[in-house]
């Protein structure tokens, strides 16, 4: 499994760039899900991993939640609010990809700062870049649902970083975090549904009546 770690990390980085370039909401949801599936296998491929039933069950749970349940919940929300199918960027797609590449450079620099083991160099870079991409998506896309996709991608990055640096004795912690995340997506889905009904649009620039 170990030789699969670097290809996995490379695919995660590629998924980030595709996410920044893609214009269709459904494609964005799918990309985030594929990324989630790749990441949830990372614990098995780590150099320090000792494959056992507990670890396998953990990965299977993460895979189900990130690869099946989240995309299903988001797709359902998408259908229910009948949103237009585009991302409607605040920052153009080409510029977004450029920003993503800048994020990759930043990620390489950050990884250098922390002095991780060499075997983890590429996965750690991928983790940082995924986090940065997620936060970028929250900021530079206009729809409420793209903010949720961004949030999910950011969590993907944090999840990968967490599995790289923490020990397996603490897996229950990651599981409870997944549970929190699950509820978060659930609540956000309800909120988006309500926003769609109340404003007849899920563009966040329509919701700006509260200010000083």
């Amino acid at each position: 499994m170990r030789e699969l770690l670097d290809p996995m990390a490379a695919s995660v980085i590629l998924a980030n760039l595709l996410l920044l370039a893609c214009s269709r909401l459904q494609v964005g949801v799918t990309l985030a899900a594929i990324q989630g599936i790749l990441l949830s296998l990372a614990p098995l491929a780590l150099p320090q991993a000792e494959p056992n039933l507990y670890l396998a069950a953990f990965c299977a749970t993460a895979l189900c939640v990130k690869g099946l349940i989240f995309p299903w919940m988001l797709s359902r929300t998408l259908q229910r609010v009948k949103a237009r199918r585009e991302m409607e960027p605040l920052l153009g797609y080409n510029l977004s990809v450029l920003a993503g590449i800048a994020g990759l450079v930043l990620a390489v620099w950050l990884r250098g700062q922390l002095g991780l083991a060499d075997a983890l160099a590429l996965p750690a870079t991928a983790a940082f870049m995924t986090g940065i991409t997620g936060f970028l998506l929250v900021i530079i896309r206009r729809k409420a649902i793209t903010q949720v996709i961004g949030y999910l991608v950011a969590e993907n990055g944090i999840f990968l970083f967490g599995t790289l640096v923490s020990s397996h004795a603490e897996l229950w912690v990651e599981l409870s975090m997944l549970l929190d995340l699950f509820v978060a997506i659930f609540v956000m889905g309800i909120a988006i549904h309500n926003i769609g009904q109340e404003f007849a649009s899920i563009n966040t620039d329509r919701i700006e009546s509260l200010k000083d």
Binding site: V138, Y151, I158, G162, M188, A191, N194, E198, I207
Partner: peptide, 28 residues
């Protein structure tokens, strides 16, 4: 249930979730 409270709830949910994601990085 009116548009202003929904806006406030959405902002709360998004801003705090992103904040708490940062705290998670801190934890890790």
């Amino acid at each position: 249930r009116h548009s202003r409270s929904l806006e406030a709830a959405w902002k709360y949910l998004m801003v705090c979730s992103v904040g708490i994601a940062l705290a998670l990085i801190g934890n890790i």
